[in-house]
Every structure is written in structure tokens, then in C-alpha cells.
């Protein structure tokens, strides 16, 4: 049987400087465009959904 990890933050993408890595990898970006393109890529790669916590912090969650 296949096992999947679900409901987990797979990655954090942010432009904020005060976010530090914890359980999930953090991708720090310089600009908004950078943030969007990295989030879009990670969403496709990780097969998760990109959620916005606020304008600066995005997370990829696998549901």
C-alpha cells in the first residue's frame, strides 16, 4: 500500500526577513515576482496547494 504525507507544510516561501526555518524548508525571496514564481514552481513540484498566510508568507500544503 502507498503511504502519503498529508496536511503538512511542505515549504515556506517568504519575502519577510523574520521567518526562520523550522520543520519545513524556507525559501527566502527578494521580490514579489520571485515569490510568485518560486511558489508556482514548488506548488507543481510538490503536488500541494499554495496558501497565502499574508502578503509576505506563502506556504505549500499537501492535502
Amino acid at each position: 500500500m502507498d503511504t502519503y504525507i498529508t496536511n503538512k507544510i511542505m515549504a515556506v516561501i517568504t519575502t519577510a526577513s523574520n521567518v526562520s526555518p523550522g520543520g519545513a524548508p524556507v525559501f527566502k525571496c527578494q521580490s514579489k515576482d520571485d515569490l510568485y514564481s518560486i511558489t508556482a514552481n514548488l506548488e507543481a513540484i510538490l503536488d500541494g496547494i499554495a496558501h497565502a498566510l499574508n502578503d509576505e508568507i506563502y506556504i505549500i500544503v499537501k492535502h
Partner: peptide
């Protein structure tokens, strides 16, 4: 914001503007 609504019912959070 990032929240998708149908009427006044919250459906889900979609982050990317393109999405």
C-alpha cells in the same frame, strides 16, 4: 484576499494570483 468565497461561504485559501 487569498480566501475563495461562494456567496458568504468560505471555500478555501488560494495563494497565487495566477491561480
Amino acid at each position: 484576499g487569498p480566501g475563495l468565497y461562494v456567496g458568504d461561504i468560505y471555500i478555501m485559501n488560494i495563494g497565487l494570483p495566477d491561480r
